[in-house]
Every structure is written in structure tokens, then in C-alpha cells.
Design a protein around this nucleic acid. Structure first.
Lengths: 319, 319
DNA sequence: CTGTTAGCGCTTTCAT
DNA sequence: ATGAAAGCGCTAACAG
């Protein structure tokens, strides 16, 4: 495989001139430019990108940390990130963390080692002070409200969205409301928890810990929720479900168990994934693709930015 | 940020010795080794991986091409690939192609440019001769039967699996059988098509093009299938559905429309995803995680290998 | 066991 | 407009 020197020789010019042609720079006569292009065409030359990276000190690679790759929430986020990466001529390095700190550390270290130019952390387990420490090596971007931190963030106001959904249910007469969430830790989950607790307090309703279901990630997790529900003497009459997938799973099991929705149980999903439309699930739309795109754009910027993305209530048949 | 020369100076040794310590090589006295480690610890030194890559001519990065990232089939495949990458200290560069040739070309070019050491193509639109041409730049691995080609492959015998499922339905008395598939092109789809046509021929059953539904990728695609079904005067009595997600969508819509399963319509899914278990769907298990792991292992090898992964019929309630 | 040195292939400054 | 030359930071052949 020829290198830039071979091309220079072949075209009868200097290495610099070849480099200029390669990078579309000015100050090259048409004549020499053509000679270089000619030489390249006749020699299946390919730039060695590692040399470019070393020389420039950057890679055009952006790291992306997601806990799971087989989850539609992260799938959509990734889709947004990937589409914007395409627009900006960058590639993505994927880190599937499974919420293992070690794996997240690996991603952070790749930033430190300059193997990626920036890092997008879609969900994390690592504590803030560690994350903030890595910020000096390159932009770190997170998908949660990080105002007050030194890393950029694109986020949804989960407190507000949750409160909105609770208010809807309350308006419809529900008093015993529960919720299903993925993991119970994390900024986003805490915001939702706070919204829930505050809402109950305002209504003077007692808190029942068994009305809160965690580890709800996938469709199939809906089954255990419904199984718990039927065991209860006073089950909740409404459920906020932080993923449409899980909401769909719950709805399906309700049908199986003869629980009518929304009569016996009202359900509000989140995300507005296609499955919510098919199954006619009332949901809070979270424009995840847009969030992903914004995350990517922030990763390219040096300044620290905090941007909020708006959600919307979509009323369908499960409330 | 200090470099290897700074460390060498600080430790009072040569860069080579530092390099040796860095790479855990032998032939370094304890004394000097300690001096180097000492110097490193006192200076937040970090290896510049781009320099390593340039020097070594490899990157420890493996490219992965998938059409969509928000699909469980590819999510699981990716999971397998990622887990094995972790074991082998490699990172993944993700290419979401949306089946655009341009995007696949980009991945192939990254191989050519030595930005990735190997390329795993989980599903492709690019023709064989193009792919084979890139093989000289590094290992290319595909997830389809590529025997006879110069690239490695890990695959499932879709002809056999499809035939197995058809035979099951036939045994249960079904004669009018249709199938749902993702895209209609691609090796895997063609194998299935062949299996279907051969089976019909063997039974002397006529081929009905409206018994074949393509573009069935997601849960929500089940809706249009069922909508078509109810329009037909003589609908199929059984359906092979090449994704459990879609099978689940079909099942859900059947419930909505009052179509009993398996009485009015028998359904066989594929993959054995968790959703199939919850919804009690008879399915052909395809160990996708295992396939992914094998793909990764092949990507690390120079030799061209073709390996078949076995599937299994899992009988549940939809046949 | 250790160090010198010549690359790896490209970018960029600076002089012309 | 052009090219010589000095890096970018690390590895590895070679000599000692």
C-alpha cells in the first residue's frame, strides 16, 4: 500500500503538495493538483488515518456509553446520535456498560488516552466527581439534568413530565397510583421519585412502597408487575410506566388476566414508541431521537451547555 | 500531558525501557522497572494510543455494521459481539447502515484505511464482489451462509429451520401457510423463500403471493399483517413469522380482532426472544448472542472460517 | 539487560 | 505557489 511519499514521487511534487490536495487546501496550481490526483487514481492509495490522528491529535471518533443495546429506549437514542454523527463525518465507538463501573471507566479512559475525542454517556453508574475529573481530557456529555456540573447535558424534565401524568390520572379520579421504573438509582429516576412523592404529599395520600415497581426494562417485565398486582388486596388503580415496552407488556398480561384497561387499571406509558400507538397506549412522548442528535452536537462543542427537550402528553385509550 | 520521552528522562532510562515496562515485556531489571513506574505515577502520564496504532499498524477496533440499532434481533447480536469484544480487549465502532450502500461503503473504507482491524457485517445490501474485494485489507465477517466466499461467516441454516417449522404446521393439519419476513432480499431471506417454495412444491400446494408479507421488522408491523389477513377471503391458517417481535404484534392484534390463536391462525415465531416466552409463542430459537460471540471471534482470525449455529424448535401455545 | 536509532504516515511551519 | 524539514508519540530492530 503506497503512502504519501510514494504519491509525491510519482506526481513529481513534494509531500506537502500532496497533503494539500488531499485536504482540499488552496495554493496548489491546477497543474500540480491534477498530477497528484492522477497519481492517486493510478495507485489505490489510501490515507492512513492513524497517522492523521497522531499528527492532528484527534480522531473523529466519539465514544457512546449505553447500558444495554437491546433496549428500544437506548436504541432510539443511539439512532439519533448515529444520524448526527453521519452528518458530521464522525464515527461512534460503542461501550455497552451493563451498568458496570469498570466498563464505564474504560470509556472514560479512552477519552483520556485520546482514542475518542468526546464521550456521550447515555446512562451512568459512575459518580459525578469521577466523571467531572475526566472532563479535562475532552467533552463529556450526559443525558440527564447536569446543571451545576462541568459537563454538558441534554435532558428531559422528568419531574415535570411525571407530575403531568400524575395530574392527568388524578383528574380522572384516580387516587391509588403506582409507578414502574427501570433502575431505582440515577438522576432521572430520582427526579421521577421526587415528583411522585411530592404529588402524594400534596394530596395527602400515603406512600405505599409496593406501588413502586423497579427493574422494569422490557416487555416481559410487565408480567411480574401484573402478577404482583393480582396478589394485592388493594392494588393501585393506575400505573405510570416509564417505558412503553413495559406498558405494552402490562397491557398484554392484563388482557390475559381479565383485568380491563382503563376500567380496572389505567396505564400511562413513556417515550411514545411505535408499540404505544399500535396498542393505543396513552403516553408521554419523549423525542429520543432528537435528544440523541442534541447529545451528539454537544459532544462536538468545547463549551458546557445544558439543554432541555420538551415532552408532550399523548392521550389514547389506556387512561 | 507528558510523553514517553518525558518519562524516560524522569526515570533516568531510555524510551525503550519505558516502552518495555509499559507493555509488560521481560528484560527489564526490577530497579529500572520501579523507577519507570515511579515516574509514571508522579506524572499522570497516558499512552497516546494513536501513536501506538500508527506504530503497530493496528487499532484494536472492530467495525460492526448493523442496519438498525433499535431492533431486538440486532440488539442481541450486538450484545454477543460486545461481550466477546470485552473479553478480548477490543472496542467496537458501530455503523448503523439503514441498508444504505453508502454507509456500508463507509465501514468498508474504514477497514481499508486501517481505522478498524476487521469488519463484522451483520446484514448487508452491498453485493458480494464488492465485499470480497475489501477482504484483502483485513478480516470481513458476515452473519449469513458465505460458504464459497473468501470471507468468514457464522450462520444459521435458515432453510432447515424454515422447513422444520413448516413441517410442524403441516403435521398439525395446516395446508394454507404464509410467512412474514423482514426484507425480501438478502441471503437469509432467500434461503427461507426457497424453503417455503420447495415445501409447497413438495405438497403440490399453489403459491399465493399474498401469503407472503415483507417489511415485517417490529412489533407494530404485526398490525398491517392482521389487517391484510381479515381482508382475505381465504386467509392462511398458519403463519411463519421471522421475528418474535412481529409474532407478538400479530398475536396482540389477533386478540383485538377476535381471531383465536391457534384455532383460527397458528403462529410460529423466530429467535426465542423473551417476549415469546411471556406471550407463549411457539418459536424457533436462534441463539443470537452466541452467534454474535462467534462473529467476533472470527473477526480476530486471519483464516476464513464458516461456522453453523444450531437452532431449536420450542413448542408453546400458538400452534 | 539496556539504549540508540530509524521508522510508522501525515500535518504544519517556515522559508523561498 | 511550493517544498524542506521538524515534529506527533510510540515500537522494534539492532548493537552492545
Amino acid at each position: 500500500m503506497p503512502n504519501i511519499r510514494d504519491i509525491a514521487k510519482r506526481a513529481g511534487v513534494s509531500v506537502t503538495t500532496v497533503s494539500r490536495v488531499l485536504n482540499d487546501q488552496q495554493y496548489v496550481s491546477e497543474e500540480k493538483r491534477n498530477a497528484v490526483i492522477e497519481a492517486i487514481n493510478h495507485s489505490n492509495y489510501q490515507k492512513n488515518i492513524n497517522a492523521v490522528h497522531l499528527s492532528k491529535g484527534k480522531t473523529n471518533l466519539i465514544g457512546v456509553v449505553i447500558p444495554f443495546s437491546n433496549h428500544p429506549y437506548f436504541g432510539l437514542l443511539l439512532e439519533g446520535i448515529a444520524s448526527e454523527a453521519l452528518n458530521h463525518n464522525h464515527q461512534l465507538v460503542l461501550f455497552q456498560s451493563n451498568y458496570e463501573p469498570k466498563k464505564e471507566k474504560e470509556a472514560l479512559d479512552m477519552l483520556k488516552h485520546k482514542q475518542v475525542d468526546a464521550l456521550i454517556i447515555c446512562s451512568r453508574i459512575t459518580e459525578w466527581d469521577t466523571i467531572e475529573r475526566y472532563n479535562e481530557y475532552g467533552p463529556v456529555v450526559v443525558c440527564e439534568d447536569a446543571r451545576g456540573k462541568v459537563v454538558s447535558s441534554t435532558f428531559v424534565n422528568h419531574y415535570q413530565s411525571f407530575t403531568l401524568a400524575l395530574a392527568l390520572l388524578h383528574r380522572k379520579g384516580h387516587r391509588k397510583m403506582g409507578y414502574c421504573i427501570g433502575r431505582s438509582s440515577g438522576t432521572n429516576s430520582h427526579q421521577r421519585e421526587r415528583a411522585y412523592n411530592d404529588f402524594l404529599k400534596k394530596l395527602n395520600e400515603p406512600f405505599h412502597s409496593h406501588y413502586v415497581f423497579s427493574d422494569c426494562f422490557h416487555f416481559e417485565d410487565g408480567e411480574k408487575v401484573v402478577n404482583s398486582l393480582v396478589e394485592m388486596t388493594t392494588p393501585p388503580s393506575a400505573l405510570l410506566v416509564t417505558s412503553d415496552q413495559v406498558a405494552a407488556g402490562i397491557l398484554t398480561c392484563c388482557h390475559k388476566q381479565g383485568i380491563s384497561v382503563p376500567e380496572d387499571l389505567a396505564i400511562v406509558g413513556f417515550d411514545n414508541q411505535p408499540i404505544a400507538k399500535v396498542m393505543n397506549i396513552t403516553t408521554i412522548e419523549i423525542p429520543l431521537v432528537k435528544v440523541g442528535q442534541n447529545l451528539f452536537r454537544q459532544a462536538l462543542k468545547e463549551e458546557v451547555l445544558h439543554e432541555e427537550i420538551q415532552t408532550a402528553l399523548i392521550e389514547r385509550g389506556t387512561v
